[in-house]
Design a protein around this nucleic acid. Structure first.
Lengths: 340, 340
DNA sequence: CTGTTAGCGCCTTCAG
DNA sequence: CTGAAGGCGCTAACAG
């Protein structure tokens, strides 16, 4: 556990010189610089981050807040966020809100304000006003990806537009009997992307002069294949009113829908067209047409934004980035077949 | 940003008293204690963790090292590890090794030793001897889950036994023509669980006096449905030597195999039995017989172990926990059908 | 270009 | 039961 004093003594210089030589922030003669580096290296000197933080106020640490880590959107985003931040020399402290309300509160009142980080990055966490206030009190940059957060820089897709795009694709293929699989917004931790995607779906229908049928909206509890499967079975098994197309508000739901169709002996896309949202790995495998939201790209941008704010604390424009979505057409959608 | 001095002044006591009143570690009269707490509360005082760390040496922070976060095993483990650690009052700093070798090295030489954590928890990371040495030098507790790490407390399943169990189930159902889908250990970051599961598979076959055929071992690059799919197609499409059962070394591979069988018009389990490993959510949905490794349970135990070491730094028994696996029989396996 | 000095905010003996 | 004082390891002026 060699400290800066050991290095200084061993190199025959002062601690200040060691500090300068190692940080490179000030002029030191090339020879002493090299000498100091050699000695520090030999002694295995690693500066104490707490001492550094105490005196500079900087932590080289970013707090990342997530509602869950074991779900697709979050683990995907976290993967690239952590990687990019590590590349930039920052550590990442992970605050997982899934431990329940009591601990959630303690995260906001204790852990977060402990001056343990230089900035906060939220992955689709919906926060109460008090929580935002607690965060703002520490006066550090806040960036949100996957959801709008008042007072923060945000990167997010327009979920309504995504829903509309998916539905319009189906309409353009001649479909008029289009069902949707989405969900209710029961989870308070999350943004109501389900609702917004549904809004887009209904907008598209209305623009095509089609009245949305409430029976064709199937509500599920989570983004899981199993949920999509049972919802689609309901929809497609109906003897009188089965749709010719399904808009699933996530690719995992779409996969479930596709499996349900197959199990019913229906062919995708000939008997039923299916479109999802996300561009999940599975959508590629199953050939599902989807609305790509490029989570990795969003995550990268969120880190870039954060780093820029850290370098330029002055300009704090209230920036909201509307990340573009893109339709990826694969083999799960086709023109509606001619009537029998 | 109220500091301890503000609280002291406002309460009319010394900073030492504030410290004692708030930490509860020393005797303070009930009245002053209450007064101090009230004042601290009112002023929104939160102790600076860097100052605390500097003087005590404790960080209340655990370093968690992972090779990836967006893969099933890791995100599942991380989910519960983070949750449990947060519950216990610790922060979690995430070190993702997927950023490439250069950054990997910097993690071990810079980030980790910075006295930034009280202990390290590794999720199935395979480390070089130098890396372990670097970690051990800081002399903090190290726990590993999902892999054996010399010098660390480990929680892991016996992968060989898991492979053997799966294969024996198939053998007990009368199968003799059993193929396996696994992989090569190309990924240096990971433990070679593939190899060990294969070992168990071959052991089981040998015990049943069956000679493993090399053509029946299909190698894949990763635990993905798509990989399992193409491997199984190869196996089952063979006109001369198709197996009656497949042991897939992960549930995701098993799902792929099941879909491949269906696409070939084969019925599972009547034409081919399939067994996986993990007890992944999808295995339940697809009715796949599997070897449950209970990742959540392993993760919980790893945290419990870590916390115990933190409380009792003295007893450092070299403990390796062999986490038990369990066969979960579902509908993807059955007795081999009578010969035509 | 380099050394000296004064804290960063807190905990912890040591006296009272 | 409480206050005063020292120091954790480092950086940032300020002199030289």
């Amino acid at each position: 556990m060699a400290g800066i004093i050991d290095v200084a003594r061993e190199a025959g210089v002062s601690t200040a010189t060691v500090s300068r030589a190692l940080s490179g922030k000030d002029y030191v003669s090339p020879e002493t610089k090299e000498l100091v580096q050699e000695v520090a290296n030999r002694l295995g000197y690693v500066p104490s981050s707490s001492a550094y933080t105490l005196v500079t106020g900087r932590t080289r640490n970013i707090g990342v807040v997530v509602p869950y880590v074991d779900r697709w959107f979050f683990s995907t985003a976290l993967e690239t966020i952590d990687r990019e931040l590590v590349k930039a020399g920052y550590d990442v402290t992970l605050y997982n809100l899934s431990s329940g309300d009591a601990h959630r509160e303690s995260v906001f009142t204790n852990s977060l304000p402990r001056k343990r980080f230089d900035a906060v990055l939220c992955i689709a966490v919906k926060m109460t006003d008090e929580e935002m206030a607690a965060l703002n009190k520490v006066n550090k940059p806040i960036v949100s990806v996957g959801g709008l957060l008042e007072g923060a820089h945000c990167i997010t897709i327009n979920d309504s537009a995504a829903g509309q795009l998916a539905t319009e694709h189906l309409l353009a293929m001649g479909h008029t009997q289009i069902a949707m699989i989405g969900g209710g917004s029961t989870d308070e931790k999350l943004f109501s992307v389900f609702d917004e995607r549904r809004e887009g779906y209904e907008t598209a229908l209305k623009l095509a002069a089609i009245k949305p049928r409430s029976a064709w909206y199937k509500q599920v509890n989570k983004y899981a294949i199993s949920e999509g499967y049972s919802a689609a079975k309901q929809l497609l098994g109906d003897p009188h009113n089965s749709p010719t197309a399904i808009f699933a508000s996530s690719d995992e739901l779409a996969v479930g829908a596709m499996l349900a169709a197959k199990d019913l002996g229906l062919s995708v896309p000939d008997d039923v067209s299916i479109v999802g949202v996300d561009n999940h790995e599975l959508a590629d495998f199953f050939g599902i047409t989807t609305v790509d939201q490029n989570v990795t790209g969003q995550a990268e941008l969120s880190v870039k934004t954060l780093l820029k704010m850290l370098d330029n604390p002055t300009e704090d424009a209230e920036m909201v980035v509307d990340w573009p979505v893109e339709l990826v057409v694969r083999s799960s959608t086709t023109r509606v077949r001619a009537k029998d």
